[in-house]
Design a protein around this nucleic acid. Structure first.
Lengths: 115, 115
DNA sequence: TTCATGTTTCCAAATATATCAAAATGTAGC
DNA sequence: GCTACATTTTGATATATTTGGAAACATGAA
């Protein structure tokens, strides 16, 4: 993930409604929810929700799958993982400062340069 | 870290200049850089930089320390760690989906409830 | 005090974002 | 075809963010 992609993803999550939408989708898992269901659960009117879903989709954080008249939105875990990876790699000091789950990480994710 | 704090921190990082500033400070470490040095390294005019530094400070991501005529800005690693923790806890599916450094996390960061 | 320097505040303009009513699009069933 | 429903697009408006010049503020040195 490059800087532009990171900024885009961060901006997508840096908004109350969108963060709520994304959290809801994460809770739900890969099946996702149709737009209407999301709007109902969070009390967001259609056009507003549509606007926010598009932002999340542009940032690559959610995927849309059409099924009949419904459009199911689901979280892109891979993308989210990439964002967290970017933050830990670039925005924390050394090694595992921002990877709290790891007591003592031994290997990093970086590819070794050819000698 | 609650939702509001998360949104604030995400918004602080969701801007090209600010992300660059924060990355620079992280690279630098706890000693920090005076504002002028940051501006010079990144080519950001004084008033603009001041505005961005304030945003980062309000979000709790940087600390300011005065030393003579200089104001040294340094990253708040604890805060960043909290943000990454929030994201992994709330915005990733199960367990370690977004903690790439960990092959098999055994313990979580959560405090055990008193029995 | 005066000067030079580092940084911020003030201000105004340009740009971007958020919201939602109304209209449009797409789809399923009749 | 028509109707009903799910969702998006349009378009207008309100609000917020970003930018940087000029001026102000703060500090240290002479």
């Amino acid at each position: 993930m490059n800087e532009l992609a990171a900024v885009t993803a961060l901006a997508a999550l840096a908004q109350e409604s969108r963060l709520a939408v994304f959290r809801l989708l994460v809770q739900r898992g890969p099946d996702g929810y149709p737009a209407g269901e999301i709007g109902e659960q969070l009390g967001i009117p259609g056009p507003t929700l549509s606007f926010h879903l598009k932002e999340l989709a542009v940032a690559g954080l959610v995927a849309a799958r059409k099924d009949g008249r419904f459009i199911y939105y689901s979280p892109n875990f891979e993308r989210m993982r990439a964002l967290v990876g970017y933050l830990t790699d670039n925005c924390c000091s050394l090694a595992a400062t921002c990877a709290p789950e790891c007591a003592a990480p031994v290997v990093t994710r970086r590819k070794r340069k050819a000698a």
